[in-house]
Design a protein around this nucleic acid. Structure first.
Length: 568
RNA sequence: CGGGGCAUGGCGCAGUCUGGUAGCGCAUCUGCUUUGGGAGCAGAGGGUCGGCGGUUCGAAUCCGUCUGCCCCGACCA
Protein backbone atom coordinates (compact mmCIF):
# COMPACT_ATOMS: atom_id res chain seq x y z
CA UNK A 1 0.00 0.00 0.00
CA UNK A 2 1.25 3.43 -0.90
CA UNK A 3 0.83 6.14 1.71
CA UNK A 4 0.73 8.71 -1.05
CA UNK A 5 -2.64 7.24 -1.98
CA UNK A 6 -4.06 6.47 1.47
CA UNK A 7 -5.80 9.42 3.10
CA UNK A 8 -4.10 8.97 6.46
CA UNK A 9 -4.49 11.68 9.05
CA UNK A 10 -2.27 11.36 12.05
CA UNK A 11 -2.35 13.72 15.00
CA UNK A 12 0.43 15.05 17.14
CA UNK A 13 -2.01 16.10 19.79
CA UNK A 14 -3.96 13.76 21.98
CA UNK A 15 -7.69 13.95 21.31
CA UNK A 16 -9.43 15.19 24.44
CA UNK A 17 -12.03 12.43 24.37
CA UNK A 18 -9.49 9.63 24.79
CA UNK A 19 -8.51 8.62 28.29
CA UNK A 20 -6.51 5.44 27.84
CA UNK A 21 -3.39 5.10 25.75
CA UNK A 22 -4.79 2.55 23.31
CA UNK A 23 -7.71 4.81 22.45
CA UNK A 24 -5.42 7.83 22.11
CA UNK A 25 -3.03 5.99 19.83
CA UNK A 26 -5.74 4.45 17.70
CA UNK A 27 -7.17 7.90 17.06
CA UNK A 28 -3.79 9.56 16.58
CA UNK A 29 -2.62 6.85 14.19
CA UNK A 30 -5.81 7.09 12.18
CA UNK A 31 -6.89 3.51 12.86
CA UNK A 32 -10.20 4.46 14.35
CA UNK A 33 -12.79 7.22 14.14
CA UNK A 34 -15.71 7.78 16.48
CA UNK A 35 -19.22 8.13 15.12
CA UNK A 36 -21.18 8.37 18.37
CA UNK A 37 -20.76 7.16 21.92
CA UNK A 38 -19.45 3.61 21.76
CA UNK A 39 -19.65 3.46 17.95
CA UNK A 40 -16.52 3.47 15.81
CA UNK A 41 -15.42 3.23 12.23
CA UNK A 42 -12.42 1.00 11.66
CA UNK A 43 -10.27 2.90 9.21
CA UNK A 44 -8.23 1.00 6.61
CA UNK A 45 -5.11 0.44 8.72
CA UNK A 46 -7.11 -0.43 11.83
CA UNK A 47 -9.26 -2.86 9.91
CA UNK A 48 -6.20 -4.73 8.70
CA UNK A 49 -5.27 -5.38 12.32
CA UNK A 50 -8.79 -6.45 13.22
CA UNK A 51 -8.86 -8.86 10.28
CA UNK A 52 -5.57 -10.42 11.33
CA UNK A 53 -6.89 -11.08 14.80
CA UNK A 54 -10.04 -12.55 13.32
CA UNK A 55 -8.02 -14.80 11.11
CA UNK A 56 -5.94 -16.23 13.93
CA UNK A 57 -9.09 -16.81 15.94
CA UNK A 58 -10.76 -18.47 12.96
CA UNK A 59 -7.84 -20.75 12.24
CA UNK A 60 -7.58 -21.94 15.82
CA UNK A 61 -11.32 -22.45 16.17
CA UNK A 62 -11.33 -24.49 12.98
CA UNK A 63 -8.35 -26.44 14.18
CA UNK A 64 -10.17 -27.21 17.42
CA UNK A 65 -13.01 -28.71 15.42
CA UNK A 66 -15.55 -25.90 15.66
CA UNK A 67 -17.76 -24.97 12.71
CA UNK A 68 -18.12 -21.39 11.59
CA UNK A 69 -21.55 -20.03 10.81
CA UNK A 70 -23.04 -16.55 10.79
CA UNK A 71 -26.22 -15.67 12.63
CA UNK A 72 -28.32 -12.54 12.17
CA UNK A 73 -27.43 -9.54 14.27
CA UNK A 74 -31.11 -8.68 14.54
CA UNK A 75 -33.16 -11.18 16.51
CA UNK A 76 -36.88 -11.60 17.09
CA UNK A 77 -38.21 -10.89 20.57
CA UNK A 78 -40.06 -14.20 20.68
CA UNK A 79 -36.85 -16.16 21.23
CA UNK A 80 -35.79 -13.88 24.03
CA UNK A 81 -39.21 -14.14 25.60
CA UNK A 82 -38.92 -17.90 25.41
CA UNK A 83 -35.63 -17.91 27.29
CA UNK A 84 -36.95 -15.35 29.73
CA UNK A 85 -34.23 -12.86 28.96
CA UNK A 86 -36.43 -10.32 27.15
CA UNK A 87 -37.36 -9.04 30.62
CA UNK A 88 -34.18 -9.91 32.52
CA UNK A 89 -31.66 -8.40 30.14
CA UNK A 90 -32.87 -4.87 30.74
CA UNK A 91 -31.60 -1.76 29.04
CA UNK A 92 -28.40 -3.42 27.87
CA UNK A 93 -30.57 -4.91 25.15
CA UNK A 94 -31.17 -2.58 22.23
CA UNK A 95 -34.77 -3.14 21.24
CA UNK A 96 -36.49 -2.09 18.06
CA UNK A 97 -39.60 -2.65 16.00
CA UNK A 98 -40.05 -3.40 12.36
CA UNK A 99 -42.72 -1.88 10.11
CA UNK A 100 -45.31 -4.28 11.50
CA UNK A 101 -44.52 -3.17 15.06
CA UNK A 102 -43.01 -6.56 15.79
CA UNK A 103 -40.34 -6.49 18.50
CA UNK A 104 -36.73 -7.24 17.73
CA UNK A 105 -33.40 -6.68 19.39
CA UNK A 106 -29.89 -6.21 18.13
CA UNK A 107 -28.11 -9.26 19.48
CA UNK A 108 -25.83 -8.66 22.47
CA UNK A 109 -25.07 -12.40 22.43
CA UNK A 110 -26.48 -15.39 20.59
CA UNK A 111 -27.44 -18.15 23.03
CA UNK A 112 -31.08 -17.92 21.99
CA UNK A 113 -30.46 -18.05 18.27
CA UNK A 114 -27.91 -20.83 18.40
CA UNK A 115 -30.10 -22.87 20.71
CA UNK A 116 -32.92 -22.42 18.24
CA UNK A 117 -30.62 -23.70 15.50
CA UNK A 118 -29.59 -26.60 17.67
CA UNK A 119 -33.13 -27.69 18.48
CA UNK A 120 -34.01 -27.70 14.81
CA UNK A 121 -30.84 -29.34 13.52
CA UNK A 122 -29.73 -31.66 16.29
CA UNK A 123 -32.02 -34.59 16.89
CA UNK A 124 -29.79 -37.47 17.87
CA UNK A 125 -26.97 -38.09 20.31
CA UNK A 126 -25.06 -39.37 17.28
CA UNK A 127 -24.71 -35.78 16.05
CA UNK A 128 -23.08 -34.68 19.29
CA UNK A 129 -20.89 -33.08 20.32
CA UNK A 130 -20.92 -30.11 18.02
CA UNK A 131 -19.36 -26.70 18.42
CA UNK A 132 -20.59 -23.74 16.34
CA UNK A 133 -18.92 -20.36 16.22
CA UNK A 134 -19.21 -17.03 14.48
CA UNK A 135 -17.25 -13.81 14.28
CA UNK A 136 -19.78 -11.08 14.29
CA UNK A 137 -20.87 -7.65 15.42
CA UNK A 138 -22.67 -7.42 18.73
CA UNK A 139 -24.46 -4.50 20.28
CA UNK A 140 -24.72 -3.93 24.00
CA UNK A 141 -26.21 -0.66 25.12
CA UNK A 142 -23.62 -0.15 27.86
CA UNK A 143 -24.43 2.43 30.49
CA UNK A 144 -21.05 3.98 30.00
CA UNK A 145 -19.10 3.06 26.92
CA UNK A 146 -15.48 4.11 27.35
CA UNK A 147 -11.88 3.51 26.47
CA UNK A 148 -12.64 3.53 22.76
CA UNK A 149 -12.98 0.13 21.26
CA UNK A 150 -12.15 -1.51 24.59
CA UNK A 151 -15.68 -1.04 25.84
CA UNK A 152 -17.68 -0.01 22.84
CA UNK A 153 -21.40 -0.56 22.42
CA UNK A 154 -20.94 -2.12 19.01
CA UNK A 155 -18.03 -4.52 18.91
CA UNK A 156 -16.73 -7.59 17.14
CA UNK A 157 -16.92 -10.81 19.05
CA UNK A 158 -16.14 -14.40 18.36
CA UNK A 159 -18.79 -16.44 20.08
CA UNK A 160 -18.92 -20.21 20.11
CA UNK A 161 -21.54 -22.56 21.50
CA UNK A 162 -21.11 -26.27 22.00
CA UNK A 163 -23.78 -28.92 22.45
CA UNK A 164 -23.33 -32.20 24.28
CA UNK A 165 -25.13 -35.26 25.47
CA UNK A 166 -23.53 -35.14 28.89
CA UNK A 167 -21.22 -33.27 31.20
CA UNK A 168 -18.19 -35.41 30.35
CA UNK A 169 -18.46 -34.46 26.70
CA UNK A 170 -18.86 -30.80 27.63
CA UNK A 171 -15.72 -30.96 29.71
CA UNK A 172 -13.77 -32.35 26.75
CA UNK A 173 -14.79 -29.49 24.52
CA UNK A 174 -14.31 -26.97 27.31
CA UNK A 175 -10.74 -28.18 27.72
CA UNK A 176 -10.22 -28.04 23.95
CA UNK A 177 -11.45 -24.45 23.93
CA UNK A 178 -9.19 -23.51 26.82
CA UNK A 179 -6.35 -24.95 24.80
CA UNK A 180 -7.42 -23.16 21.62
CA UNK A 181 -7.63 -19.86 23.48
CA UNK A 182 -4.14 -20.27 24.86
CA UNK A 183 -2.92 -20.96 21.33
CA UNK A 184 -4.73 -17.90 19.98
CA UNK A 185 -3.26 -15.46 22.45
CA UNK A 186 0.16 -17.04 22.16
CA UNK A 187 0.04 -16.81 18.39
CA UNK A 188 -1.01 -13.17 18.59
CA UNK A 189 2.14 -12.47 20.56
CA UNK A 190 0.34 -11.28 23.67
CA UNK A 191 1.31 -11.80 27.30
CA UNK A 192 -1.80 -13.26 28.85
CA UNK A 193 -3.07 -15.41 31.67
CA UNK A 194 -6.00 -17.78 32.03
CA UNK A 195 -7.77 -17.38 35.33
CA UNK A 196 -10.64 -18.96 37.22
CA UNK A 197 -13.57 -16.62 37.10
CA UNK A 198 -17.02 -15.88 38.29
CA UNK A 199 -19.58 -17.10 35.82
CA UNK A 200 -21.74 -14.05 36.48
CA UNK A 201 -25.17 -13.69 34.96
CA UNK A 202 -24.72 -16.39 32.36
CA UNK A 203 -24.61 -19.00 35.07
CA UNK A 204 -23.24 -22.48 34.88
CA UNK A 205 -20.59 -24.50 36.57
CA UNK A 206 -17.06 -23.65 35.50
CA UNK A 207 -15.69 -20.61 33.87
CA UNK A 208 -12.32 -19.20 32.99
CA UNK A 209 -11.31 -15.76 31.79
CA UNK A 210 -8.38 -14.96 29.55
CA UNK A 211 -6.67 -11.70 30.38
CA UNK A 212 -4.13 -9.75 28.42
CA UNK A 213 -1.74 -8.42 31.04
CA UNK A 214 -1.50 -4.64 31.10
CA UNK A 215 -1.04 -2.08 33.83
CA UNK A 216 -4.14 -0.27 32.73
CA UNK A 217 -6.30 -3.39 32.97
CA UNK A 218 -9.65 -3.11 34.71
CA UNK A 219 -9.40 -6.49 36.40
CA UNK A 220 -7.05 -7.66 39.10
CA UNK A 221 -5.68 -11.19 38.83
CA UNK A 222 -4.10 -13.18 41.63
CA UNK A 223 -1.58 -15.77 40.50
CA UNK A 224 1.22 -17.95 41.76
CA UNK A 225 3.79 -19.18 39.29
CA UNK A 226 4.97 -21.97 41.57
CA UNK A 227 1.69 -23.88 41.54
CA UNK A 228 -0.04 -22.38 38.46
CA UNK A 229 -2.83 -20.93 40.55
CA UNK A 230 -4.55 -18.03 38.77
CA UNK A 231 -7.88 -16.48 39.54
CA UNK A 232 -9.69 -13.21 39.22
CA UNK A 233 -9.34 -11.38 42.53
CA UNK A 234 -13.13 -11.34 42.64
CA UNK A 235 -13.04 -15.09 43.06
CA UNK A 236 -9.67 -16.01 44.57
CA UNK A 237 -10.08 -17.51 48.03
CA UNK A 238 -8.11 -15.79 50.78
CA UNK A 239 -6.72 -18.57 52.96
CA UNK A 240 -7.33 -18.39 56.73
CA UNK A 241 -4.12 -17.55 58.60
CA UNK A 242 -2.29 -20.66 59.72
CA UNK A 243 -0.76 -18.99 62.76
CA UNK A 244 -2.96 -19.15 65.86
CA UNK A 245 -4.27 -15.86 67.18
CA UNK A 246 -1.80 -14.18 69.55
CA UNK A 247 -2.91 -13.89 73.16
CA UNK A 248 -4.49 -10.66 74.28
CA UNK A 249 -1.83 -8.40 75.74
CA UNK A 250 -3.51 -5.04 75.93
CA UNK A 251 -6.44 -3.98 78.09
CA UNK A 252 -9.64 -2.81 76.44
CA UNK A 253 -9.69 0.95 76.58
CA UNK A 254 -12.14 3.49 75.21
CA UNK A 255 -10.51 6.53 73.64
CA UNK A 256 -12.02 9.75 72.34
CA UNK A 257 -11.69 10.08 68.58
CA UNK A 258 -13.58 13.26 67.69
CA UNK A 259 -14.46 13.47 64.04
CA UNK A 260 -12.42 10.37 63.19
CA UNK A 261 -14.29 7.87 61.07
CA UNK A 262 -12.46 6.23 58.20
CA UNK A 263 -9.85 3.55 58.83
CA UNK A 264 -7.27 5.90 57.36
CA UNK A 265 -8.23 8.62 59.86
CA UNK A 266 -8.36 6.21 62.79
CA UNK A 267 -4.94 4.76 61.98
CA UNK A 268 -3.40 8.19 61.65
CA UNK A 269 -5.09 9.59 64.75
CA UNK A 270 -4.11 6.68 66.99
CA UNK A 271 -0.76 6.16 65.26
CA UNK A 272 -1.38 2.52 64.46
CA UNK A 273 -1.28 0.61 61.17
CA UNK A 274 -4.48 -0.03 59.25
CA UNK A 275 -4.00 -3.74 59.83
CA UNK A 276 -4.32 -3.12 63.59
CA UNK A 277 -7.82 -1.78 63.03
CA UNK A 278 -11.11 -3.54 62.49
CA UNK A 279 -13.37 -2.28 59.73
CA UNK A 280 -17.04 -2.91 60.40
CA UNK A 281 -19.39 -2.68 57.42
CA UNK A 282 -23.12 -2.82 57.91
CA UNK A 283 -25.06 -4.42 55.09
CA UNK A 284 -28.62 -5.44 54.47
CA UNK A 285 -29.33 -9.03 55.45
CA UNK A 286 -32.18 -11.28 54.51
CA UNK A 287 -35.56 -10.13 55.83
CA UNK A 288 -34.12 -6.61 56.04
CA UNK A 289 -32.24 -7.40 59.24
CA UNK A 290 -28.95 -5.54 59.33
CA UNK A 291 -25.73 -7.49 59.47
CA UNK A 292 -22.18 -6.44 60.34
CA UNK A 293 -19.20 -7.68 58.32
CA UNK A 294 -15.86 -7.20 60.02
CA UNK A 295 -12.55 -7.00 58.16
CA UNK A 296 -9.05 -5.97 58.99
CA UNK A 297 -8.54 -2.30 58.19
CA UNK A 298 -6.11 -2.97 55.37
CA UNK A 299 -8.40 -5.44 53.63
CA UNK A 300 -11.20 -4.86 51.13
CA UNK A 301 -14.61 -6.47 51.25
CA UNK A 302 -15.17 -8.90 48.38
CA UNK A 303 -18.70 -8.43 47.14
CA UNK A 304 -19.06 -11.83 45.52
CA UNK A 305 -17.88 -13.64 48.62
CA UNK A 306 -20.22 -11.66 50.86
CA UNK A 307 -23.11 -12.44 48.57
CA UNK A 308 -22.39 -16.14 48.99
CA UNK A 309 -23.38 -15.93 52.64
CA UNK A 310 -26.97 -17.04 53.24
CA UNK A 311 -27.53 -14.19 55.71
CA UNK A 312 -26.62 -11.50 53.19
CA UNK A 313 -29.10 -9.88 50.87
CA UNK A 314 -28.19 -10.12 47.23
CA UNK A 315 -27.16 -7.84 45.60
CA UNK A 316 -24.94 -6.69 48.41
CA UNK A 317 -26.20 -3.36 49.72
CA UNK A 318 -24.57 -1.18 52.31
CA UNK A 319 -26.98 0.03 54.98
CA UNK A 320 -27.73 3.74 54.88
CA UNK A 321 -26.47 5.89 57.76
CA UNK A 322 -30.08 6.26 58.90
CA UNK A 323 -30.59 2.48 58.98
CA UNK A 324 -27.34 2.05 60.91
CA UNK A 325 -28.29 4.74 63.39
CA UNK A 326 -31.68 3.17 63.97
CA UNK A 327 -30.29 -0.32 64.48
CA UNK A 328 -27.17 0.26 66.55
CA UNK A 329 -27.47 3.81 67.80
CA UNK A 330 -24.43 5.38 66.18
CA UNK A 331 -23.14 6.45 62.78
CA UNK A 332 -21.31 4.05 60.42
CA UNK A 333 -17.90 5.56 61.25
CA UNK A 334 -18.00 4.50 64.88
CA UNK A 335 -19.18 0.90 64.74
CA UNK A 336 -17.30 -1.98 66.27
CA UNK A 337 -18.08 -5.59 67.08
CA UNK A 338 -18.22 -5.18 70.87
CA UNK A 339 -21.80 -5.37 72.21
CA UNK A 340 -23.18 -4.79 68.76
CA UNK A 341 -26.94 -5.18 68.51
CA UNK A 342 -26.83 -6.97 65.15
CA UNK A 343 -25.32 -10.22 63.92
CA UNK A 344 -21.61 -10.17 63.13
CA UNK A 345 -19.62 -12.17 60.58
CA UNK A 346 -15.86 -11.77 60.66
CA UNK A 347 -13.23 -12.33 58.03
CA UNK A 348 -10.64 -14.99 58.88
CA UNK A 349 -7.80 -12.50 59.08
CA UNK A 350 -9.72 -10.06 61.26
CA UNK A 351 -10.69 -12.92 63.57
CA UNK A 352 -7.07 -14.03 63.92
CA UNK A 353 -5.82 -10.66 65.13
CA UNK A 354 -5.37 -9.49 68.72
CA UNK A 355 -5.23 -6.12 70.46
CA UNK A 356 -7.19 -4.36 67.77
CA UNK A 357 -8.63 -0.88 67.34
CA UNK A 358 -12.33 -0.77 66.58
CA UNK A 359 -15.34 1.51 66.82
CA UNK A 360 -17.01 1.74 70.23
CA UNK A 361 -20.57 2.08 68.95
CA UNK A 362 -20.64 5.51 70.52
CA UNK A 363 -20.14 8.70 68.57
CA UNK A 364 -16.52 9.82 68.44
CA UNK A 365 -15.17 6.89 70.43
CA UNK A 366 -13.02 3.90 69.54
CA UNK A 367 -11.63 1.02 71.56
CA UNK A 368 -8.02 0.00 71.63
CA UNK A 369 -6.92 -3.40 72.83
CA UNK A 370 -10.02 -5.16 71.56
CA UNK A 371 -9.74 -8.96 71.66
CA UNK A 372 -12.08 -11.67 70.42
CA UNK A 373 -13.14 -14.13 73.07
CA UNK A 374 -12.48 -11.62 75.84
CA UNK A 375 -14.29 -8.46 74.74
CA UNK A 376 -16.73 -10.11 72.39
CA UNK A 377 -17.85 -13.65 71.78
CA UNK A 378 -15.75 -15.80 69.47
CA UNK A 379 -17.19 -14.74 66.14
CA UNK A 380 -18.59 -16.59 63.21
CA UNK A 381 -15.83 -16.44 60.59
CA UNK A 382 -15.85 -16.54 56.81
CA UNK A 383 -13.74 -15.54 53.83
CA UNK A 384 -14.95 -12.03 53.12
CA UNK A 385 -12.01 -10.16 51.65
CA UNK A 386 -10.09 -9.71 48.43
CA UNK A 387 -6.89 -11.66 48.24
CA UNK A 388 -3.82 -9.40 48.36
CA UNK A 389 -0.25 -9.77 47.14
CA UNK A 390 1.75 -11.93 49.50
CA UNK A 391 -1.23 -14.00 50.64
CA UNK A 392 -0.61 -17.74 50.42
CA UNK A 393 -1.75 -19.38 47.21
CA UNK A 394 -4.85 -21.53 47.68
CA UNK A 395 -2.99 -24.22 45.76
CA UNK A 396 -0.20 -24.23 48.30
CA UNK A 397 2.67 -23.05 46.14
CA UNK A 398 3.65 -19.97 48.10
CA UNK A 399 2.71 -16.30 48.04
CA UNK A 400 0.53 -14.91 45.26
CA UNK A 401 1.21 -11.88 43.10
CA UNK A 402 -1.41 -9.51 41.78
CA UNK A 403 -1.38 -8.43 38.16
CA UNK A 404 -3.76 -6.27 36.19
CA UNK A 405 -5.43 -7.58 33.09
CA UNK A 406 -7.88 -6.85 30.32
CA UNK A 407 -10.47 -9.54 29.84
CA UNK A 408 -10.40 -10.65 26.23
CA UNK A 409 -11.86 -14.11 26.46
CA UNK A 410 -14.25 -16.05 28.62
CA UNK A 411 -15.26 -19.68 28.47
CA UNK A 412 -18.22 -21.16 30.31
CA UNK A 413 -19.80 -24.46 31.02
CA UNK A 414 -23.41 -23.46 30.60
CA UNK A 415 -25.19 -26.69 31.45
CA UNK A 416 -28.79 -26.93 30.32
CA UNK A 417 -30.04 -23.45 31.17
CA UNK A 418 -30.90 -22.54 27.58
CA UNK A 419 -31.55 -26.00 26.25
CA UNK A 420 -34.23 -26.38 28.91
CA UNK A 421 -35.93 -23.03 28.50
CA UNK A 422 -35.83 -23.37 24.71
CA UNK A 423 -36.44 -27.12 24.75
CA UNK A 424 -33.41 -28.19 22.79
CA UNK A 425 -33.30 -31.94 23.25
CA UNK A 426 -31.93 -34.97 21.47
CA UNK A 427 -32.73 -38.66 21.73
CA UNK A 428 -30.12 -40.60 23.65
CA UNK A 429 -29.01 -44.21 23.19
CA UNK A 430 -32.19 -45.39 24.86
CA UNK A 431 -34.45 -43.31 22.67
CA UNK A 432 -35.14 -41.02 25.57
CA UNK A 433 -35.33 -37.26 25.07
CA UNK A 434 -32.67 -35.34 27.00
CA UNK A 435 -31.89 -31.64 27.12
CA UNK A 436 -28.50 -30.96 25.61
CA UNK A 437 -25.67 -29.73 27.78
CA UNK A 438 -24.08 -26.54 26.52
CA UNK A 439 -20.86 -24.59 26.69
CA UNK A 440 -20.18 -21.11 25.40
CA UNK A 441 -16.90 -19.42 24.55
CA UNK A 442 -16.36 -15.76 23.79
CA UNK A 443 -13.48 -13.69 22.54
CA UNK A 444 -13.60 -9.91 22.28
CA UNK A 445 -11.95 -9.59 18.89
CA UNK A 446 -12.04 -5.81 18.67
CA UNK A 447 -11.05 -5.52 22.30
CA UNK A 448 -7.93 -7.58 21.60
CA UNK A 449 -6.70 -4.87 19.27
CA UNK A 450 -6.95 -2.25 22.02
CA UNK A 451 -5.52 -4.61 24.62
CA UNK A 452 -2.53 -5.32 22.41
CA UNK A 453 -1.80 -1.60 22.21
CA UNK A 454 -2.20 -1.20 25.97
CA UNK A 455 0.42 -3.86 26.36
CA UNK A 456 2.72 -2.73 23.55
CA UNK A 457 3.42 0.98 23.20
CA UNK A 458 5.99 3.62 24.00
CA UNK A 459 6.22 7.40 23.91
CA UNK A 460 6.45 7.33 20.13
CA UNK A 461 3.37 5.23 19.52
CA UNK A 462 2.17 1.71 18.95
CA UNK A 463 4.49 -1.30 18.83
CA UNK A 464 2.47 -4.04 17.17
CA UNK A 465 3.19 -7.62 18.03
CA UNK A 466 4.21 -8.94 14.64
CA UNK A 467 1.28 -11.35 14.22
CA UNK A 468 -1.23 -8.51 14.28
CA UNK A 469 0.65 -5.67 12.61
CA UNK A 470 -1.18 -3.89 9.77
CA UNK A 471 1.97 -4.21 7.66
CA UNK A 472 5.20 -6.04 8.31
CA UNK A 473 7.50 -3.47 6.77
CA UNK A 474 7.34 0.23 6.09
CA UNK A 475 9.68 1.62 3.47
CA UNK A 476 10.41 5.24 4.22
CA UNK A 477 11.41 6.90 1.02
CA UNK A 478 13.29 10.12 1.65
CA UNK A 479 12.60 12.94 -0.78
CA UNK A 480 11.35 10.70 -3.57
CA UNK A 481 10.24 13.69 -5.62
CA UNK A 482 13.80 14.95 -5.81
CA UNK A 483 15.65 11.76 -6.45
CA UNK A 484 15.12 9.35 -9.28
CA UNK A 485 17.39 6.80 -7.66
CA UNK A 486 15.46 6.86 -4.41
CA UNK A 487 12.18 6.38 -6.24
CA UNK A 488 13.57 3.56 -8.31
CA UNK A 489 15.10 1.79 -5.34
CA UNK A 490 11.87 2.21 -3.38
CA UNK A 491 9.71 0.78 -6.14
CA UNK A 492 12.01 -2.14 -6.68
CA UNK A 493 12.23 -3.00 -2.98
CA UNK A 494 8.47 -2.65 -2.67
CA UNK A 495 7.99 -5.28 -5.38
CA UNK A 496 10.72 -7.56 -4.09
CA UNK A 497 9.53 -7.62 -0.49
CA UNK A 498 5.97 -8.30 -1.54
CA UNK A 499 7.23 -11.10 -3.73
CA UNK A 500 8.59 -12.90 -0.69
CA UNK A 501 5.23 -12.63 1.04
CA UNK A 502 5.67 -9.53 3.15
CA UNK A 503 2.97 -6.92 3.61
CA UNK A 504 4.62 -3.66 2.75
CA UNK A 505 3.60 -0.07 3.34
CA UNK A 506 5.52 2.53 1.37
CA UNK A 507 5.78 6.06 2.62
CA UNK A 508 6.24 7.76 -0.72
CA UNK A 509 4.52 10.94 0.39
CA UNK A 510 6.04 14.26 -0.44
CA UNK A 511 6.75 15.01 3.18
CA UNK A 512 9.76 15.82 5.25
CA UNK A 513 11.76 12.93 6.72
CA UNK A 514 10.87 13.81 10.29
CA UNK A 515 7.17 13.55 9.53
CA UNK A 516 7.64 10.12 7.99
CA UNK A 517 9.74 8.77 10.83
CA UNK A 518 7.27 10.02 13.40
CA UNK A 519 4.35 8.45 11.54
CA UNK A 520 6.18 5.15 11.08
CA UNK A 521 6.76 5.00 14.83
CA UNK A 522 3.21 6.07 15.65
CA UNK A 523 1.76 3.41 13.36
CA UNK A 524 3.91 0.80 15.04
CA UNK A 525 5.03 -1.07 11.93
CA UNK A 526 7.56 -3.63 13.24
CA UNK A 527 10.22 -3.11 10.58
CA UNK A 528 11.34 0.05 8.87
CA UNK A 529 13.60 0.39 5.88
CA UNK A 530 14.79 3.90 5.10
CA UNK A 531 15.92 4.69 1.60
CA UNK A 532 17.71 7.96 1.09
CA UNK A 533 20.02 9.44 -1.43
CA UNK A 534 22.85 9.55 1.07
CA UNK A 535 22.91 5.80 1.64
CA UNK A 536 22.16 4.94 -1.96
CA UNK A 537 25.45 6.46 -3.03
CA UNK A 538 27.04 3.35 -1.56
CA UNK A 539 24.01 1.17 -2.32
CA UNK A 540 22.98 1.07 1.32
CA UNK A 541 19.74 1.47 3.18
CA UNK A 542 18.95 1.64 6.85
CA UNK A 543 16.97 -0.96 8.75
CA UNK A 544 15.36 -0.19 12.09
CA UNK A 545 13.38 -2.44 14.38
CA UNK A 546 10.46 -0.63 15.97
CA UNK A 547 10.44 -2.44 19.29
CA UNK A 548 14.14 -2.23 20.15
CA UNK A 549 14.96 0.85 18.14
CA UNK A 550 18.05 -0.96 16.87
CA UNK A 551 19.39 0.31 13.59
CA UNK A 552 21.65 -1.41 11.11
CA UNK A 553 22.86 -0.60 7.67
CA UNK A 554 22.07 -3.08 4.92
CA UNK A 555 23.15 -3.33 1.34
CA UNK A 556 20.17 -2.56 -0.86
CA UNK A 557 20.51 -5.92 -2.60
CA UNK A 558 20.57 -7.75 0.71
CA UNK A 559 17.29 -6.43 2.14
CA UNK A 560 15.04 -9.05 0.63
CA UNK A 561 17.30 -11.85 1.77
CA UNK A 562 17.50 -10.25 5.21
CA UNK A 563 13.73 -10.50 5.63
CA UNK A 564 13.50 -13.92 4.04
CA UNK A 565 16.05 -15.25 6.51
CA UNK A 566 14.23 -13.58 9.34
CA UNK A 567 11.00 -15.30 8.39
CA UNK A 568 12.88 -18.54 8.58
C1' C B 1 -28.93 5.44 36.90
C1' G B 2 -26.32 8.62 40.86
C1' G B 3 -22.14 12.24 41.22
C1' G B 4 -18.71 15.69 38.51
C1' G B 5 -17.08 18.26 34.05
C1' C B 6 -17.16 19.95 29.00
C1' A B 7 -19.51 21.81 24.35
C1' U B 8 -16.05 28.00 20.15
C1' G B 9 -13.30 26.04 11.96
C1' G B 10 -11.01 18.90 10.93
C1' C B 11 -7.87 18.45 15.90
C1' G B 12 -6.03 20.96 20.52
C1' C B 13 -7.37 25.41 23.01
C1' A B 14 -8.07 31.01 24.51
C1' G B 15 -12.08 34.44 24.83
C1' U B 16 -17.35 33.70 29.05
C1' C B 17 -16.20 36.04 35.51
C1' U B 18 -16.65 42.07 33.88
C1' G B 19 -22.06 41.63 27.12
C1' G B 20 -19.75 45.79 22.29
C1' U B 21 -18.46 43.29 14.98
C1' A B 22 -14.69 35.63 16.96
C1' G B 23 -8.89 34.59 18.01
C1' C B 24 -4.26 31.29 18.65
C1' G B 25 -1.49 26.63 17.58
C1' C B 26 -1.76 22.19 14.57
C1' A B 27 -3.93 20.45 10.06
C1' U B 28 -5.60 22.02 4.83
C1' C B 29 -4.58 25.06 0.00
C1' U B 30 -0.95 28.46 -3.02
C1' G B 31 4.08 30.35 -3.75
C1' C B 32 9.27 30.54 -2.57
C1' U B 33 13.15 28.46 0.32
C1' U B 34 14.21 23.90 2.79
C1' U B 35 14.81 18.25 3.10
C1' G B 36 17.94 11.78 7.68
C1' G B 37 13.45 12.76 13.47
C1' G B 38 6.83 16.33 13.38
C1' A B 39 10.78 23.06 8.70
C1' G B 40 10.82 28.70 7.64
C1' C B 41 8.66 32.92 5.35
C1' A B 42 4.49 35.11 2.72
C1' G B 43 -0.49 34.52 1.57
C1' A B 44 -5.47 31.87 1.42
C1' G B 45 -9.84 29.04 2.59
C1' G B 46 -12.81 27.23 6.49
C1' G B 47 -16.76 28.73 12.41
C1' U B 48 -25.39 30.09 12.34
C1' C B 49 -19.54 29.87 19.18
C1' G B 50 -24.24 22.28 20.50
C1' G B 51 -30.10 23.33 19.79
C1' C B 52 -34.35 26.21 21.27
C1' G B 53 -36.36 30.18 24.09
C1' G B 54 -35.60 34.64 27.10
C1' U B 55 -33.11 39.42 29.01
C1' U B 56 -30.73 43.57 26.29
C1' C B 57 -29.92 48.90 21.70
C1' G B 58 -26.48 44.73 21.35
C1' A B 59 -25.30 37.77 23.63
C1' A B 60 -19.88 32.98 22.45
C1' U B 61 -20.41 35.87 27.10
C1' C B 62 -26.23 36.78 31.41
C1' C B 63 -30.93 33.59 32.52
C1' G B 64 -34.02 29.19 31.38
C1' U B 65 -34.47 24.67 28.91
C1' C B 66 -33.17 20.61 25.90
C1' U B 67 -29.35 17.66 23.53
C1' G B 68 -24.61 15.56 22.89
C1' C B 69 -19.94 14.14 24.78
C1' C B 70 -16.20 13.00 28.62
C1' C B 71 -14.75 11.42 33.68
C1' C B 72 -15.83 8.62 38.70
C1' G B 73 -19.19 4.44 40.83
C1' A B 74 -22.65 -0.86 40.03
C1' C B 75 -22.22 -4.70 34.57
C1' C B 76 -19.28 -7.15 30.56
C1' A B 77 -15.86 -9.83 25.23
Amino acid sequence: MRLSRLPLNTFKEIPAEAEVVSHQLMLRAGLLRRLASGLFTWMPLGLRVLRKVEQVVREEMDRAGAFELLMPAVQPAELWQESGRWEIYGDLLLRMQDRHQRDFCFGPTHEEVITDIARRELKSYKQLPVNYYQIQTKFRDEIRPRFGVMRAREFVMKDAYSFHLDQASLEDTYAAMADAYARIFTRLGLRFRAVDADSGEIGGARSQEFHVLAESGEDAIAYCDADHFAANVELAPAMPPTEPRPDASAPLKAVDTPGVHSIEDVARFLKVKAQQCLKTLVVLGRDDQLLALVLRGDHELNTLKAEQLPEVQKPLTLASPEQVMAAVGCAPGSIGPKDLAIAVIVDHSAAAAADMVCGANTADQHFTGFNWGRDAAEPRVADLRDIVAGDPSPAGGGPVNIARGIEVGHIFQLGDKYSRSLQAAVLDQNGKEVAMTMGCYGIGVSRIVAAAIEQNNDDDGIIWPEPMCPFHVIIVSLNPKKSESVTEATDRLYEDLQAVGLEVLVDDRDARPGVKFADADLLGIPHRVTIGERGLKSDQVEYRERRSGKETTLALDAVTAFFRDRQG
